[in-house]
Design a protein around this nucleic acid. Sequence first.
DNA 1: GATACAGTCTACAGCGACTGTAGAGGCAAG
DNA 2: CTTGCCTCTACAGTCGCTGTAGACTGTATC
Lengths: 146, 146
Amino acid sequence: MKPMTIGRLSSAAKVKVTTIRYYESIGLMGTPDRSASGQRLYGGVDVERLSFVRHARELGFSMDAIKDLIGLQTEPDQDCSAVDTIAQKQLAEVQKRLAQLEALERELKRMIENCRGGKVGGCQVMAAINDHSECETDKHERLKPL
Amino acid sequence: MKPMTIGRLSSAAKVKVTTIRYYESIGLMGTPDRSASGQRLYGGVDVERLSFVRHARELGFSMDAIKDLIGLQTEPDQDCSAVDTIAQKQLAEVQKRLAQLEALERELKRMIENCRGGKVGGCQVMAAINDHSECETDKHERLKPL
DNA sequence: GATACAGTCTACAGCGACTGTAGAGGCAAG
DNA sequence: CTTGCCTCTACAGTCGCTGTAGACTGTATC
């Protein structure tokens, strides 16, 4: 197999060129070979590794978690429970976030349903945002962006 | 009512001092009065406004949306439908995000259930992250952080 | 060979929504 | 008057990238 440039790797793994260079800079992809003129050269292994990273990102894993997973991947004889632990932790985070969002959804729906039109001055949606008191999702922890 | 310092406003509205200054810098809170020595001075109105911002943030509204809402709040005679539209949009985003996360939850659960222990080399979780093919959440759009 | 154009290179700034730091000055209680 | 917290400004850092500028490289067409 002959090596490919960063652009080919990019379309093969569906990760942007700039992102690949970024991943290299944070040590997620090793330092690739270079052509005589200094262009990065990659092989099939890199496509796999980068696709792995992409899918893990799509599953919401943090960069740190992904680094750990890649580290484990290179030691296939270790016990699999470390991997399991990372995945479990990720699932727990997803479920926590789901619960938050479900509460949010209920609250937004309630706000909107109570709105019967009219002027902003008497708007129930505004009132709902103002009166945090009656609200089921009270004492939120800081909500991360959607 | 006598004015309060930023620290009092902070505890009254449950928004950090630094965050209040940040909100001021982006034009979310007007420029407050200052004491002779240059300390910011706030009144009850500011507590309300800041609490409104906090709750809107907790509901996941973007800063831009909040700016719009505050703008509307100061014109109580306008039609309420503008407020409704913003809330509807927010609800739609929450629901979209919920759907993504539910798909994620299913996939993570499936991965973890298939894991029967053993070595990393044969780990089904790893395999699942590698094989994006069989996965129901294929062609994700970029997932925002949890 | 000349030219055009896409691809690649480095280095750095910017995004959102804050948080943290440094170093200086202000204010009230004991 | 000292102690100890509060406030001030200004700027760097967070995360996971994305965008920009300006220069070089590689390939296809004439």
